[in-house]
Computed example of a mutant assay.
Amino acid sequence: MKKKPLIYRISQLTGFLLGARFFMTLLLAFALYVSTFFLFNQEESLRAFVFDFRVHGIIFCSLLSILAGGIINQFYDREKDQLVKPFRSRLQSFLKQKYFLYAYLVLNTLSLGIALFISTRVVVFFLIYQFMMWFYSHRLSRMLIINNITFVALTLYPFFGMLVYYRTFSVQIFMMALYLALMLLLTDIIKDTLTKTADRLFGYFTVPNSLSSKATVVIISTLLLLTFGVSLIITEWLGLQRIMGWYFLTGMAVLAAAFYNMIQAKDRSRSYALNILRIWIFVGILAMLADGIILKY
């Protein structure tokens, strides 16, 4: 049997990592740890947190489930991705789809196995998560409005789990969660404006391909204004003595820049708006980290 060249193996590995949304999962892992320790964990010391294996187990189960969700999502979206993301699809083609499905089953099973060592409630939590990830990819991602709402809910689901674990409920955390939910909803709808033709071709009913361009811009503008209002409220609560206060204050200018690019009838401008919002979400994680370090130490 002829041995595969190294470049082929590297292409297979890269295709698998992209198919499983590995790099996005790393970002979510970072966000989970930062938000868990600096936002939800109000009392525990760093030493206690480091040795709290239940927390690490829950986060690890979340990451395994997210990887599995990325795999099943690309399995159902592979035809559309060939048109929208040809380079990534080409890399993924180096690995047969059956191996992606094997990995999907292994990752979900491993996640549930680890959850079983923590508690039966954690098992139920991740069973629901994994089922919804599959149902979203199989059915909900094609349904108008529901696809966007479900995307946001599934992205926030692991964070909600950590919030319940620490029982840290407050109006401030609710408003921050609302801000993040609005930002995620905005990025998802703007992304749909860039894949409008492919979505229509493959039967995905999204806001941009189901409503007029004017109605889509009105919806996005309304969401931007709501996000702007939430930013203003949080800024007043936090004040400018904290880094997060400056983050939400500066975020108003970022939202204005995204709005300006969004109203331009060009895909390039809307791509700028999408990237601006995505980068700003990442900046928010860094701001939370810096703010948390200053407050705790």
Score class of each variant (00 low, 15 high):
R21G: 02
F22G: 02
F22K: 03
F22R: 04
F22A: 13
F23E: 04
F23R: 09
F23Q: 06
M24K: 01
M24L: 14
T25Q: 02
T25E: 04
L26G: 09
L26F: 08
L27Y: 15
L27R: 03
L28V: 11
L28D: 03
A29Y: 08
A29H: 08
A29P: 03
F30G: 00
F30H: 04
F30E: 03
F30L: 11
F30M: 06
A31C: 03
L32V: 03
Y33R: 10
Y33A: 08
V34C: 08
V34Q: 02
V34K: 12
S35K: 13
T36F: 05
F37A: 05
F37M: 09
F40D: 00
F40N: 00
F40C: 00
N41A: 15
N41K: 06
N41C: 12
N41P: 04
Q42L: 14
Q42F: 10
E43L: 10
E43K: 14
E43F: 12
E43H: 13
E43T: 14
E43D: 15
E44S: 15
E44W: 07
E44I: 11
S45N: 12
S45K: 07
S45D: 07
R47W: 12
A48M: 14
A48I: 03
A48D: 12
F49I: 04
F49W: 14
V50F: 15
V50L: 15
V50M: 15
F51G: 01
F51T: 15
F51L: 14
D52A: 12
F53V: 07
F53R: 10
R54S: 14
R54N: 15
R54Y: 11
V55G: 02
H56D: 00
H56V: 01
H56W: 14
H56I: 02
G57V: 01
G57D: 00
G57Y: 02
G57C: 01
G57S: 11
I58C: 05
I58D: 03
I58E: 05
I59C: 07
F60T: 05
F60W: 04
F60Q: 03
F60Y: 04
F60C: 07
F60L: 09
C61G: 04
S62M: 05
S62R: 08
L64G: 01
L64T: 04
L64F: 06
S65A: 07
S65E: 04
S65P: 01
S65T: 06
I66H: 11
L67S: 08
L67V: 04
L67T: 07
A68Y: 06
A68H: 10
A68F: 07
A68R: 05
G69R: 06
G70A: 11
G70T: 08
G70D: 11
G70I: 03
G70S: 06
I71Y: 06
I71G: 02
I71E: 02
I71D: 06
I71M: 09
I71W: 07
N73E: 09
Q74C: 09
Q74N: 15
F75S: 08
F75D: 11
F75K: 10
Y76M: 12
D77E: 12
D77W: 05
R78M: 11
R78A: 07
R78Y: 12
E79F: 10
K80P: 00
K80M: 11
K80H: 00
K80I: 10
D81V: 00
D81Y: 06
Q82G: 13
Q82F: 10
Q82D: 09
Q82T: 02
K85S: 12
K85G: 03
K85Y: 13
P86G: 10
P86L: 10
P86D: 08
F87H: 13
R88C: 05
